[in-house]
Design a protein around this nucleic acid. Structure first.
Lengths: 202, 202
DNA sequence: TGACTAGTTTACACTCTGTTGTATAATCAA
DNA sequence: TTGATTATACAACAGAGTGTAAACTAGTCA
């Protein structure tokens, strides 16, 4: 109880890593619905029964992988948020460090994020990523002044949130699909340009 | 051969309709991967073998349903495009009739579009709908002048297209998820306000 | 080293798939 | 209306995948 991070049996780490890698590989090669526990076990060079020692079924595995992903995302969002404190002026010049950090993280694990968000017909985790973005955009919209663009045009707040968050997630999506032809920093700058109402410079 | 619309055996129409309705119902109730041919046949009150007389498997059925959907979408896009001809000035005042027609169509068949685009974790047809929107947005971006917002800020054209199309599809998605709290016309107006660079009034 | 735990192996009952052959019922054309 | 045609129903099958159990093997940690 004294140690926060429990010591985990390295066999468990190894097996879960093998399963995860096998799944990502298979998702490159075929649609989600064609992936079976059999195939995952075979590709991961583990016994099929071992899979069931870790996950109830494939949807359960997806759920846990998504949770893992979101832990990483939230770690980035919280880290950069607290680092810069409350200096919204400088924030814009740097085109929002949080956004840059997020895009850099996605670029680092691009294989995972591509198959999981942007690939084929099954953007299985898009929904998850949308959630924190909605939260961020919501804050921006809520705190926008009476004379802001959104207020001047009487745009309902929920529509403003829909717009900002889906534009952002869609651009990340397209960027991954196009095999990341721009650097995270440059893309972040363009996003800030296109979404001025959400980046302070309104 | 003289008649364009082939006379189709009413039994075929009936069976395919039953299958389609059963599938949409099941998609309300469970994830795509939990839906089997067995369940579809049972719900549709047809024999399981009959399913295979119409579709090779479930992915094939999805493909054909998507094709059907896209036929309807393209019919709307082409109809309103040709109706108004080339009067881009008036177009904006009416907040883009094509967009209104599209949203009205989606609202009319909201149950289908909700499960198929916006529901749960499997937006199975989103990709399809994205395609014509990308085409439309691309035209707007290509034809934008040297002194337009996009040109003044040197925003790459592909990024501009990513932005416009994903903002649009995302707003449609969120609108469906929220159970369409605004009329198609009103939503279209808000979209035109938020995306001025794509609606002529730049 | 010895206790513990993860992974392997084999086996079983079950569901789903895709196909075949035959029978029945609905549709269409003359 | 009749006869030919075609869609659907029904029963059966092999093959694959699922989820679970029990006994065994091997890696981990104190």
């Amino acid at each position: 109880m004294s140690n926060g991070s429990q010591r985990i049996d390295p066999r468990i780490v190894r097996t879960r890593q093998l399963i995860k890698e096998a799944f990502i590989e298979l998702l490159w090669e075929m649609d989600l619905e064609k992936i079976s526990v059999n195939k995952i076990a075979e590709r991961a060079t583990i016994n099929r029964v071992t899979f069931y020692l870790h996950y109830r079924d494939i949807p359960d595995m997806l759920e846990k992988m998504a949770d893992e992903m979101m832990d990483n995302i939230y770690a980035i969002l919280n880290r950069t948020d607290s680092q810069q404190g409350g200096k919204p002026g400088q924030q814009d010049q740097e085109s929002w460090p949080t956004l840059v950090a997020l895009l850099e993280h996605i670029a680092e694990y691009s294989k995972f994020y591509t198959v999981t968000l942007a690939f084929k017909r099954s953007p299985i985790f898009t929904d998850r990523l949308l959630k924190p973005l909605v939260g961020i955009i919501k804050d921006k919209v809520e705190s926008s002044g009476k004379d802001s663009f959104l207020a001047r045009n009487a745009i309902p707040k929920d529509i403003a949130v829909w717009f900002g968050s889906s534009a952002m997630i869609g651009m990340i999506n397209s960027w991954l699909r196009a095999d990341m032809p721009y650097t995270p920093r440059y893309l972040a700058q363009q996003m800030a340009l296109l979404l001025p109402h959400y980046f302070g410079n309104d």
